[in-house]
Design a protein around this nucleic acid. Sequence first.
RNA 1: GGCGACGUAGCCAAGUGGUAAGGCAGGGGUCUGCAAAACCCCCAUUCAGCGGUUCAAAUCCGCUCGUCGCCUCCA
Length: 454
Amino acid sequence: MKIFSTLSGKKEQFVPQSDEVTMYVCGVTPYSDAHIGHAMSYIIFDVIRRYIRFSGYKLKFIQNVTDVDDKIIDRANKKGIPAIELAEQYSDSFMADMDALNVVRADFYPRATGEIDKIIEMVQGLVNNGYAYEVNGSVYFRVTKVSDYGKLAHRTLDSMMAGARIEIEQDKEHPMDFTLWKASKPGEPSWTSPWGEGRPGWHIECSAMSLKYLGDTIDIHGGGSDLIFPHHENEIVQSECFTGKKPFAKYWMHNGLLQFGGDKMSKSLGNLITIKDALQKYNVDTIRIFILNSHYRSPLKYSLEAFQAAESAADRLRRTVEREDNANNTNKLDPQPYRKLFIEAMDDDFNTPQALAALFDLARAINQAADAGTDISEAKNTLAELAQNVLGLKLASISYEQNPEIQKLIQERQTFREERNWKEADDVRQKLADLGVAVEDTPTGVKITPLKKK
RNA sequence: GGCGACGUAGCCAAGUGGUAAGGCAGGGGUCUGCAAAACCCCCAUUCAGCGGUUCAAAUCCGCUCGUCGCCUCCA
């Protein structure tokens, strides 16, 4: 298995430290509903996790919830509720979204507010060994003391300074120094520390959690490419300087970002589509195929057309899995060649578009074989296994058996058809269409599917 | 201003030296009472443009044009 690491800038052979792979992906700061950009990132890392397990490794996966932060405090103040309550609310909302998107849960979701002891221990350690300094109750990291600062973003301190819009903060020794511990203002959530009342800076919680739950060196650390700098860069220096061990993470993985249409990517929330909105309109498989049909490191443009294409594609796989087995036929379709292609694609830095292509090739072969009466049971199992276990698709069809109105109309139509009364039969079909379902006559009986949105 | 990514058919999108995957849409056909689904055939002599290296380039190099990201909160 090969993984592209942002740190080295190339694909590397994946060699975990042990049979149990340790992995950390930056989670959310819960102050509003998550949007489909979040869905993209977490679905991608979900598939990566699923594939690592599918390949035979064990995996320990941790994801943070940063439940104390400026934006949470601002938003909570506007709403007139405690910050922790707001964070709780949106954190629950996020978990519900992840479940709905069929994202496998992490082993544990530590919260920043629950890890204050570890955070203070780290900040103190960094002060003690000279990598951090306290000014007016806040503690800053001294970036000039680290020779390889910028190694993840592939930049140097000088190049960062050139033309950068950096707000000059009087307290900092160097403009690029970043906050480890922030002195709190009155009314803000705060904890007692050796430097007075305060709260964690932005980057420190991820380091603390990763070190505490996964160890000094983990195998994979991931997140959106917008986190490379400064978030992950800072995680690296503060962690490595605290533990004295390198590397903090062996492989750094970053997904490309979702772009919103050709229009202005307006910063106002009007342009953002929440996961809840998307799920209202499309099923999980549609959303997952939309995302997995492009490579995870490439940016992806949101478009209605692409979603509709993904919906049709999902439907194709779903229908294929539902075809009759012909299990009594002695001719069998062998899915191995397709399985091999799928695995080769996934082994090459999780090339899901190519893996999906292998699945569609298998689907075509299955349909061909099914038309010919060949036994497709094993091939179908392979298709379902790879699609569901690795790509996290559900391939679940909607059942209308519990709907008496639809069942009654189907019966009516069957009667007309047996009487060869095509006119009446077609009228009933139209009635069913008005109810949002399409009826298909197949050799094995009537099949009801949701009517396609045009 | 600095750093970086990208530009492949109507749309989405793989492919990083050996002659263009896959999905969607479209056209024709088989099947069907009609449909739908499925299947078959067709749909980029060509990979933004211009030069260069090479026996050979979408793939390497240079320039031009265009789009985007990061440098500030962000998956």
